[in-house]
Simulated scan of single mutants.
Amino acid sequence: MEMKIGELAARTGCPVETIRYYEREGLLPAPSRSAGNYRQYDAGHVERLSFIRHCRSLDMTQEEIRALLALRDRPEAECGSANRLIEEHLHHVEVRIAELESLRGQLRDLRARCSGEGASEACGILRELEQPGPSPVATEECAHAGHLHVPGVHRRG
């Protein structure tokens, strides 16, 4: 059963541009082409794209998805790698949760500086924001992941 890109998009709930992007990135294999040069996808593309979309719904990076796809493509491979990858991803999620909780505390403290009444020139929020903010800090978790932690930025590349 072959289908065009629009049909694949409809079956998987994935936008056409995203499908093309996954092809360019090598996550989704290039489909065969019809005589009219239309992309022709099959059930394998549906399965692989569904796998990729599930990984993305778990906020996995392309690198993590690539590693899992490589394991999926080699059924004889040891599954311990998948377990370690998920364990590491879980750790990053826990770090991000802690960062978000810290951010929430900072925002609540900032909000408490203003009653919401009076002129903006006396606003405690605006006065506090005029002060130099914290500089980016490299945390052990971020250094391990190869990126610099900047408060307020919670995605890793």
Score class of each variant (00 low, 15 high):
E2A: 03
I5G: 02
I5F: 01
G6P: 05
G6F: 00
G6Y: 03
G6L: 04
E7K: 15
A9D: 12
A9W: 11
A10Y: 02
R11G: 05
G13P: 04
E17V: 09
T18S: 15
R20K: 15
Y22R: 03
Y22P: 00
E23P: 01
R24C: 08
R24P: 02
L28P: 02
P31D: 05
P31F: 00
R33D: 00
A35N: 11
N37G: 06
Y38N: 00
Q40Y: 06
D42I: 00
A43M: 10
H45I: 00
H45L: 02
H45N: 09
V46P: 08
S50L: 10
H54T: 12
H54E: 10
S57Y: 07
T61A: 05
Q62F: 15
L69Q: 04
L69G: 02
P75G: 03
A77Q: 14
A77W: 12
E78S: 12
G80M: 04
G80W: 03
A82I: 02
I86D: 07
H89F: 10
E94F: 07
V95M: 08
V95W: 01
R96E: 07
L100A: 10
L103P: 01
L107A: 13
G116C: 11
A119T: 08
S120M: 14
A122V: 12
I125Y: 03
L126F: 14
L129V: 05
L129D: 11
Q131D: 07
G133M: 02
G133D: 03
P134A: 13
P134G: 13
S135A: 14
S135T: 10
P136S: 08
V137Q: 14
V137I: 14
A138W: 06
T139Q: 08
E141V: 09
A143N: 03
L148G: 04
H149E: 02
H149D: 01
G152V: 00
V153P: 01
H154I: 08
R155H: 12
G157S: 13
